[in-house]
């Protein structure tokens, strides 16, 4: 256990160093004059000119060696200071708090919604593998997975906002604004988690110990709680961890369609505007977040299935 935590801590430090160095090198390697790109990001695409770029160059000291800027960023980081955005002038940590916060909220809502839909359907299908629900699920989940997210988003907006008028089409600020983007993401997630749960459940339901449980007189509910849930849990938790990571960084399209202030959108704009402190800060927090998420998934898996803890901890 202690070894596992120590391992994750070492991993976190490695990730921080690697992310810092790599994002810095990549931002330097991007083509184009950095002062012009920052000026375009700040003042808008048709207000950028040589004079504005020169002013940016002077203000930010862009003609000084880049390694100096990296050194400054790193020393600041040791004091837990992420610096200020070169586009907005606001502290990077505040921008990330707002935008990563919005992404986490949306990802959390999507995941929660998908948990309400996917695993229950998957369990029911898995318990009667080959039944009508199982075959129907295969068709529906394949269909849902193959619909691109932006199309799903537009379909839901047209249905629930335009036709029925129940929900706001897009925007941010009220709880109702969560529902459509979260549902768009959740449907895709649920399609996959239902399949995974179904396979795990079908596997468990076909085992001799499950048959024995039924034979010794346990009801279906009892049987599932005592012998099913824990056995399908590891596969499901591992999968959910992966999905959450994908959700946080990969929902740029959904953020754009629903006007949601997420971190994916922020990162794309920061890269276009060569906002190096913002890119470094975001990449660093995302990297560390994924290490923490992996650690949490491992811990949850250990808790669900304590067999072989020592071995798994060393390997993870």
């Amino acid at each position: 256990m202690i070894r596992a935590v120590g391992y994750r801590l070492a991993q976190a430090v490695m990730v921080a160093l690697l992310v810092g160095v790599l994002t810095f090198l990549m931002m330097q390697a991007l083509p184009g004059d950095m002062a012009f790109r920052i000026a375009a990001g700040r003042y808008g695409y048709d207000s950028v000119n040589a004079a504005a770029a020169e002013a940016v160059r002077q203000e930010l000291g862009l003609d000084r060696p880049a390694i100096e800027a990296f050194g400054r960023w790193f020393m600041d980081l040791l004091r837990l200071d992420f610096g200020t955005s070169v586009i907005s002038g606001a502290p990077v940590i505040e921008e990330i708090r707002h935008q990563l916060g919005a992404s986490l909220q949306l990802a959390g809502a999507a995941l929660a919604l998908s948990l309400l839909i996917g695993p229950p359907v998957g369990v029911m299908a898995g318990l009667r593998a080959g039944g009508w629900l199982d075959r129907g699920l295969l068709v529906v989940s394949t269909a849902l997975r193959s619909v691109p997210q932006f199309l799903m988003g537009l379909i839901l907006i047209v249905l629930f906002s335009i036709q029925l008028g129940w929900l706001p089409a897009a925007g941010y600020g009220r709880p109702a604004h969560f529902i459509l983007p979260a549902l768009t993401l959740a449907l895709g997630l649920a399609a996959a988690s239902a399949r995974i749960t179904r396979d795990a459940m079908a596997g468990v339901a076909g085992t001799p110990f499950y048959a024995f449980g039924r034979w010794k007189g346990l009801g279906e509910g009892q049987l599932f709680r005592r012998h099913g849930l824990r056995n399908i849990g590891v596969a499901l938790v591992t999968f959910l961890g992966l999905q959450f990571a994908m959700l946080v960084e990969g929902v740029v399209v959904i953020e754009a369609i629903f006007g949601w202030p997420g971190i994916g959108h922020a990162l794309v704009h920061a890269i276009f505007g060569r906002d190096v402190p913002m890119v470094q800060g975001t990449a660093l927090l995302l990297g560390l977040g994924f290490v923490a998420l992996n650690a949490a998934v491992d811990l949850a898996a250990h808790w669900i299935d304590p067999r072989g803890t020592e071995k798994a901890g060393a390997k993870a």
Partner: peptide
Amino acid sequence: ASYQAVGRAETRALLAESGD
């Protein structure tokens, strides 16, 4: 009054149509 920036033109049109 509220202001919301929406980059995608389709979404802006949908917001007008839905009355949001």
